[in-house]
Design a protein around this nucleic acid. Sequence first.
DNA 1: CGTACTTTTGAATCGCATCAAATCTGGTGG
DNA 2: CCACCAGATTTGATGCGATTCAAAAGTACG
Lengths: 202, 202
Amino acid sequence: MDWRDLSESQPTFARIPLRLRTLAKTLPLAPGQTLCRLGDRVDSAFAVIRGEMRLVRRDRNGNEVILQRVRAAFFAEASLSARAYHCDLVAAESSEVLCFPVRAFREALNNDAAFRDAWMSHLANEVRKLRAQCERLSLNGAAQRVAHYIESEGVNGVITLSQTRKAWAAQLGLTHESLYRTLRRMQEQGVIQVTGARITMA
Amino acid sequence: MDWRDLSESQPTFARIPLRLRTLAKTLPLAPGQTLCRLGDRVDSAFAVIRGEMRLVRRDRNGNEVILQRVRAAFFAEASLSARAYHCDLVAAESSEVLCFPVRAFREALNNDAAFRDAWMSHLANEVRKLRAQCERLSLNGAAQRVAHYIESEGVNGVITLSQTRKAWAAQLGLTHESLYRTLRRMQEQGVIQVTGARITMA
DNA sequence: CGTACTTTTGAATCGCATCAAATCTGGTGG
DNA sequence: CCACCAGATTTGATGCGATTCAAAAGTACG
């Protein structure tokens, strides 16, 4: 996963103005390395281009509470309109993060209408996806979650998975064992039809 | 819940330019009434001011799949940058919806910098809240979800609930019975301290 | 060809949902 | 002021389904 790959999954990237692009710095991070801490003054906007970043807080016993895990995406978008970061940003594994100077980022949003539109539509799209995801995760029953995923992420009851089933299971908030069994059961009952990476609601 | 209440929970409302405000229309909806359908041309941006709206799709058997439930908030934000709505918008109960002409809304975003900033920060904030919510819902164990909620939504391990516990349970993806039992157990184990609506991590 | 990872199946366990019912609460109208 | 009602809160008993641990078979890649 590099800048180029990211441009495909995150179309917003293609709209980043050249000037802002030249100001971006790629920062390699070792596993466990901290990018910044709660309370630090916001000076950069970030995107993960390789690996996984975690937004964490610590309770008074020092236990980590994971607020978010991020792969191949912008993160901490809200810090653009904040003074200080509201949590720690830590690399979960060996990762690479793209850093944009926040001042230049804000200016670009103000001056470049195309970039701004892309950014707003990126945010709105995230909101839509995340709300669907929340709705899905609050369903109980693995089968219901699978059906919801196909209906909401697929096209006309058909979906082609672009990830392993193990990763899909994690996204659905299930163990991979549960997902495998559920898919088999649903297929047996004729609710879905599985052909490789292609799944169809019957 | 009316326009005034909404302004408190949704600060974005205060930033809506006067001109756009005068163009807004309040639309009462009966339970089950459809506001618009998948494929309809986008002509309005919406906010629920009373009741509950649902964004739904139907599978080929006609079963409703709820993509989102919305109370007291903007919804279908992504339709601002779309041609057509991507799902049905239906009132779950007797509701009131604020409708903004989408053209005027887009113009306001382009011309009014303060409104635009408020809107972007609204969206970014939604993204942050929703990502935390997803992370929470993918935890298993009621106690973990409660702890996560207090750590991420509270301040320094303390939270004052502004809703009934039943509603909180729903938000956590639990039955209210589970939540009551979990709170009692956590209190017995000294993990939290409950004082009315105020809950403190020990 | 070996290694790492995914996919698949099995068995045991545990926690949450579910159903049921009692109590408590705030708000309404008599 | 009290009776009453709707909804929230609380506790109990039961069953199902997901997790967990274990292990085997399949698959991609160097």
